[in-house]
C-alpha cells in the first residue's frame, strides 16, 4: 500500500490467466502439501477463494487449518504445490518481498498478540508505522478503525486493562488498519465468551461486506451454523467438504439434536 510491489513475470502471468478465466480469484492453492519431517500437515490441497468471499475453515484440532492459514502469509512455506495470494506467487516469493505480501493480509489470532507495553492506540498505530505511513495519516486512521470495531474511547488503555473481547477487537483494528484485501483469523473466538464471539464474527462479516475477503478457521460451530456461509472442512490434512452455504458439520440438524 505504501511500498510499491515489484511485478515479477510469473505474477503477471498468473494475473493475466486469472483475468482471462474471468474468475477474480484471491487465493489459489493447487496441490499443496506441507510436511514437518514425517508428519504430513496438509496433503494435496486444492482450494480457490474468490475476492469478496467469507469462508469458514473447520475441522478437528490438528487437521491442518492453522497450517493452511500460515501458508497464506508465508509464515510457513509449502513443501509441494503452489500458493497464490492476490496474484503473488507466495511459494516463490523472494524473502525481501515477504513484507509486501504481509501488508496485504491482516491476521487475527486466538491469543490476540497485542503488545502489552503499548496502549491500544499505539498497538494499532504500530502497523502503520511499520509500513512507513506518515504521522498525520496515522493520527487520522487509528481513531477511525478503533471506532469501527467499537473501541472508541479506549485509545489510552493498555491491553491488560481490557476484556478478552475488547482485546480481540483491538487486534481486529490492527489487522484492518492497513486496509488489507484479505483477513485471516485463526480461532479468533477461541478465548472468548458467547457475546464477545458474536461481536467479533459480526465485525468480520462487516469487513467482508466492505470488500475484504475473510477466511476464518474456527471450532465455534454455533456461529458457523447460524451464519450459513461457505464452509471448507479439513480432516487429516485433506479437504473433505466444501459447501457453498453450510453448517459446521454435514448435518446441522444432528448437531442441534445432540445439543453439541
Amino acid at each position: 500500500m505504501y511500498g510499491r510491489e515489484t511485478p515479477c513475470i510469473t505474477n503477471i502471468w498468473l494475473g493475466y490467466i486469472a483475468y482471462r478465466m474471468g474468475a477474480r480469484l484471491l487465493i489459489v492453492l493447487s496441490h499443496v502439501s506441507k510436511h514437518y519431517g514425517n508428519i504430513c500437515a496438509l496433503d494435496d490441497v486444492t482450494l480457490n477463494i474468490t475476492k469478496g468471499e467469507f469462508v469458514f475453515l473447520v475441522g478437528p484440532s490438528g487437521a491442518g487449518k492453522s497450517t493452511l492459514l500460515q501458508l497464506l502469509f508465508r509464515e510457513e512455506k509449502a513443501s509441494e504445490g503452489s500458493v497464490v495470494v492476490d496474484n503473488l506467487n507466495v511459494t516463490r516469493l523472494p524473502r525481501r518481498h515477504v513484507p509486501l505480501l504481509r501488508r496485504k493480509v491482516g491476521v487475527v489470532f486466538q491469543d490476540f498478540k497485542l503488545l502489552n507495553s503499548k496502549t491500544v492506540f499505539e498497538n494499532v498505530a504500530f502497523v502503520l508505522q511499520v509500513t512507513g505511513a506518515p504521522k498525520s495519516f496515522i493520527r487520522r486512521r487509528v481513531p477511525q478503525v478503533l471506532n469501527l470495531v467499537g473501541l472508541a474511547g479506549k485509545e489510552r488503555a493498555y491491553p491488560e486493562q481490557l476484556s478478552g473481547g475488547e482485546q480481540q477487537r483491538a487486534s481486529l483494528a490492527r489487522a484492518i488498519a492497513n486496509s488489507p484485501r484479505l483477513i485471516l483469523a485463526d480461532e479468533p473466538t477461541g478465548n472468548l465468551d458467547r457475546d464477545s464471539s458474536w461481536s467479533i464474527m459480526r465485525l468480520l462479516a462487516e469487513f467482508n461486506k466492505r470488500g475484504a475477503t475473510v477466511l476464518v478457521a474456527t471450532h465455534d460451530w454455533p456461529i458457523v451454523d447460524a451464519m450459513q456461509r461457505r464452509v471448507v472442512e479439513i480432516n487429516e490434512g485433506k479437504i473433505t467438504r466444501d459447501d457453498e452455504q453450510g453448517g459446521y458439520s454435514r448435518s446441522v440438524a444432528t448437531n442441534r439434536a445432540l445439543g453439541r
Partner: peptide, 16 residues
C-alpha cells in the same frame, strides 16, 4: 520477541 513477531506479521521490512 513479541514485538518482533508482530512486526514480521504486519509486514515490517527487515531493515525496520
Amino acid at each position: 520477541r513479541d514485538e518482533i513477531e508482530v512486526m514480521r506479521l504486519v509486514g515490517a521490512s527487515s531493515a525496520f
